[in-house]
């Protein structure tokens, strides 16, 4: 699974450079580089373009046509008023707090339970292990809308309707988290754990002190996935939270666009907060782990 995180960036380098060197000719090398950067720029425009438009829109003052054609990316009267307007329209701090509680809790539970279940499925031997794995993987393909009502009924019988734990619970550990962690543990060389066993470590100690530190890359991936999923989730919080004071940011931000008004600049400012806030936070927290990967081996050779 580590292959999906850091390595592609690394392995992308050598092949791209090597043929250029073999080609020898200076011109061909420049063509190769130009082509590469042209492609990179294209991808940049596609992925970052809408984001830039949204950012530009959120900074535009009254009186500017937001849908001008071609798009006008430099605001004539740059202003932060739209951001202030978001806070006036919705109780932003409490929505952000609720979203943070939900996202952080979801990250912790997914990392913890995902790692535990993944370790058991990768390393321990017990009956029906294959069947358990199959059932967990099968849940990946069930759309949430289908089980919505039964999940709601369970949540209600637990007395968690209209509470933040009720929002976290259905996705406290997802099949994807378990699957990613299991793959991470499978990739570890058994010798390390065997060495630990020889030194007298129990199953818990092996998990906590030997296996877990070696899968930080996977933990970071699970953490980022579960954080962004919980942060962006809309339908479930809308259904389970009855009192508007408990709404999370994605639900609350809907009220920026009224039934009869759609001030795109304010909406853009609101969505920028949704998009940007968790990104910054995640990068500060997880950047190191995310790029480190797993390869820093405990076993040489």
């Amino acid at each position: 699974m580590s292959a999906t995180t850091a390595p592609p960036r690394r392995s992308a380098q050598p092949p791209a450079v090597a043929p250029a060197r073999r080609g020898g000719g200076r011109g061909r090398r420049w063509v190769g580089i130009a082509l590469r950067y042209a492609l990179l720029l294209l991808v940049l425009v596609i992925t970052v373009g809408p984001f830039v438009w949204q950012l530009a829109t959120s900074l535009k003052g009254a009186g500017e046509n937001l849908f001008a054609n071609p798009p006008d990316l430099i605001p004539n009267n740059p202003t932060l008023e739209n951001y202030a307007a978001v806070a006036q329209v919705v109780p932003l701090t409490s929505y952000v707090r609720n979203s943070l509680v939900v996202a952080v809790a979801s990250t912790i539970t997914n990392c913890l339970f995902g790692a535990m279940a993944g370790y058991a499925l990768a390393r321990m031997r017990f009956r029906f292990r294959g069947a358990v794995l199959a059932v967990i993987v099968a849940t990946l393909v069930i759309p949430f809308e289908v089980i919505l009502i039964s999940v709601f009924l369970i949540t209600r019988s637990l007395g968690l309707v209209n509470t933040l734990p009720g929002v976290v619970l259905p996705t406290a550990v997802t099949a994807l988290s378990i699957f990613i962690m299991r793959s991470g543990f499978l990739d570890l060389p058994r010798e390390v754990e065997e060495a630990g066993q020889v030194d007298g470590a129990g199953e818990w100690q092996l998990f906590r002190h030997v296996a877990l530190p070696s899968v930080r890359g996977q933990l970071a991936v699970v953490g980022i996935f579960s954080f962004t999923f919980a942060w962006d989730d809309f339908l479930w919080p809308l259904i389970v939270l009855r009192d508007p004071a408990n709404y999370t940011l994605t639900v609350g931000i809907q009220f920026l666009s009224g039934t009869f008004s759609r001030d795109q600049a304010v909406i853009a400012a609101g969505t920028m907060m949704i998009a940007v806030a968790p990104l910054i936070l995640l990068f500060v927290l997880l950047q190191k782990q995310f790029f480190r990967g797993v390869g820093e081996g405990a076993v040489k050779g």
Binding site: L148, I239, R242, V251, T259
Partner: peptide
């Protein structure tokens, strides 16, 4: 008074009806 967003309202109302809410 409870005000719910338009987006997702259909699902919310159906769920509420099925669960007596």
């Amino acid at each position: 008074w409870v005000d719910i967003p338009f987006e997702g309202a259909a699902q919310r109302v159906i769920t509420d009806a099925s669960t007596g809410e």
